[in-house]
Simulated assay, not measured.
Amino acid sequence: MEKSKKSKANKKSKDSALTVKLNKTQQKQKEVNRVLKLKHEILLKSEVSYLEYIEMRSELERLNALKETFTRRVEKLKQQAK
């Protein structure tokens, strides 16, 4: 009987750990998306110098890479949770 209780407890702790990781990753993903959207709006609405444009472009590329990373990580965690 103790083995089944322990295995259930282990499974619950693993599930809760995955849920926490998934929630934190989704929060990070939302924040990256929010910042990315703001940067796009700033770029479209304001007149920026070429130097500022180059800096923003490199930052947008970095943010897009982060966005893709978080998307893959969320999908991986969702698969593990199943």
Results as ranks from 00 to 15, higher is better:
residue 71 T to R: 08
residue 59 E to L: 11
residue 33 N to M: 11
residue 47 E to Y: 11
residue 34 R to M: 04
residue 72 R to Y: 02
residue 11 K to C: 01
residue 64 N to H: 10
residue 20 V to K: 15
residue 5 K to P: 01
residue 80 Q to C: 12
residue 57 R to K: 15
residue 22 L to H: 10
residue 34 R to K: 13
residue 58 S to K: 13
residue 23 N to V: 07
residue 21 K to P: 01
residue 20 V to P: 02
residue 42 I to Q: 15
residue 41 E to W: 03
residue 22 L to G: 12
residue 63 L to W: 07
residue 51 L to D: 15
residue 47 E to S: 06
residue 25 T to V: 04
residue 68 E to M: 04
residue 6 K to E: 08
residue 58 S to N: 10
residue 9 A to D: 05
residue 34 R to N: 09
residue 27 Q to I: 07
residue 74 V to I: 13
residue 42 I to M: 11
residue 32 V to I: 14
residue 1 M to L: 00
residue 49 S to A: 04
residue 6 K to D: 00
residue 76 K to A: 11
residue 20 V to A: 14
residue 50 Y to M: 07
residue 56 M to I: 10
residue 20 V to F: 15
residue 53 Y to I: 04
residue 28 K to M: 08
residue 62 R to P: 00
residue 22 L to P: 14
residue 27 Q to W: 09
residue 70 F to N: 03
residue 5 K to R: 08
residue 26 Q to R: 15
residue 7 S to C: 02
residue 79 Q to I: 09
residue 62 R to W: 03
residue 26 Q to W: 04
residue 30 K to A: 12
residue 32 V to Y: 09
residue 24 K to V: 01
residue 29 Q to H: 15
residue 68 E to S: 08
residue 73 R to G: 00
residue 21 K to L: 04
residue 6 K to H: 02
residue 37 K to Q: 13
residue 10 N to E: 13
residue 47 E to W: 04
residue 79 Q to L: 05
residue 41 E to S: 12
residue 78 K to P: 04
residue 73 R to I: 01
residue 52 E to G: 06
residue 71 T to K: 04
residue 60 L to V: 11
residue 15 D to T: 09
residue 76 K to G: 03
residue 11 K to A: 08
residue 3 K to E: 05
